[in-house]
Design a protein around this nucleic acid. Structure first.
Lengths: 217, 217
DNA sequence: GAGTATTTGTACGAACAATTT
DNA sequence: AAAATTGTTCGTACAAATACT
């Protein structure tokens, strides 16, 4: 999405390490060389080396034990860290994932929502329907609405997964909006209204059905 | 899950900043003081301060613009970073999220799987059904099976979301297994077999139905 | 429009703590 | 007890982007 003018050393090394693992040079289960050695090999400081390794640790490719070493947990390019993956991901895949998550969240929200949730969703819906000056505002209010539903689902894990994706969705929506400026399709406003009503009625089946119809792209 | 002997300064400050935002001290949309000032206020180096801010940036609570400053994007404890959230999350919530994701992935896998995927899933299923010496191995082979299905879905975003959760699921499964040692319920093996067959038949509806029945906890 | 100051981003080097072998 | 390895923190320097005069 964004094209950094310069790729940091840490990211370059992360990519390099990934290929090493993919190529089988460091098999799953094996211990990789200590940070100090790697830093020397790559000609960087240990700080930079650590940063490179940490992104792989966080995504579960590597696991480190203090006083022992760092081990390879999984292999394959599929295991790139989340940030990188989402950046590289196809628009189609992000849209698909969004649809699934929003469907799930709609079901949960219909089951678990309380009165406060309903008020907040209603408010977000109202804001969404107002005319906006810029496309940025429009995209933002759309996401806000869905985020409120995500909160109403009362499942912090699902919420966090959705929230994490939203950062990327935002830019995607903008890109798309700039392409075809037809804005909201005629029934988009009605669909969002219906989704709200289904959740208010506590009707998970209806909520799922409507959520499936909201095609964002 | 784990209890660090000592909490790093960065994490302490992250928590502190979160409360500042929650309390409304720094409203959404406002620009927070520059890193250098904050570092001085908290009595730490800018390095440490940056680390604290970065975890909030990554989770979308803050957003930084080079040459400008750092802005508050969202408020509320819901926005804690993913790592923290998943660690604190209730077992019930993780199980629920897992069920939803596995259902979604089953549908996608049934639609998108190719022959290679089928072979890999079959292999993973075979391994899953073998008798295991330890509970760890058993839990691992169960997750492996589902991860193969996730790969067969051919959606890197959904895959990554699932993969991210798996790290935590693993420990949870173990915990649960140690509690009630009844291992696989009688029909669990059959359900997994059915899920495999549904994906092989490319029957998304059947796959969804079966996946919904697999209750891991 | 140009130049300067401010602010975030990247990278290095060093030291010590904590943990495992 | 000692050595090796990861974890944390500091201080510093410069690059890159933005804001301001």
């Amino acid at each position: 999405m964004k094209k950094p003018t310069r790729i940091s050393l840490a990211k370059q090394i992360t990519t390099e390490i990934e290929s090493q693992i993919e190529s089988g040079r460091w098999p799953v289960g094996s211990k990789i060389p200590p940070e100090s050695h790697l830093a020397e090999q790559f000609g960087v400081s240990r700080n930079t080396m650590r940063e490179a390794l940490q992104s792989l640790t966080q995504s579960g490719v590597l696991a480190s034990k203090p006083g022992d070493g760092t081990y390879v947990m999984t292999a394959g390019k599929f295991e790139a860290n989340m940030y990188t993956r989402l950046e590289k991901a196809e628009t189609k895949e992000i849209a698909e994932a969004r649809l699934f998550l929003e469907k799930d969240l709609a079901i949960l929200a219909a089951k678990n929502r309380n009165e406060t949730d309903i008020e907040k969703i209603a408010l977000a819906l109202k804001k969404r329907n107002e005319k906006k000056a810029t496309l940025e505002e429009e995209a933002k209010s759309d996401i806000e609405f869905h985020v409120e539903i995500a909160k109403a689902a009362h499942n912090s894990v699902m919420y966090e997964l959705y929230r994490y994706m939203s950062n990327y969705i935002y830019e995607l929506i903008l890109e798309k909006m700039y392409q075809d400026l037809e804005k909201d399709s005629p029934d988009s406003e009605k669909l969002h209204q219906d989704l709200f009503l289904a959740i208010k009625k506590q009707d998970p089946i209806e909520a799922e059905k409507v959520a499936s119809c909201i095609n964002h792209f």
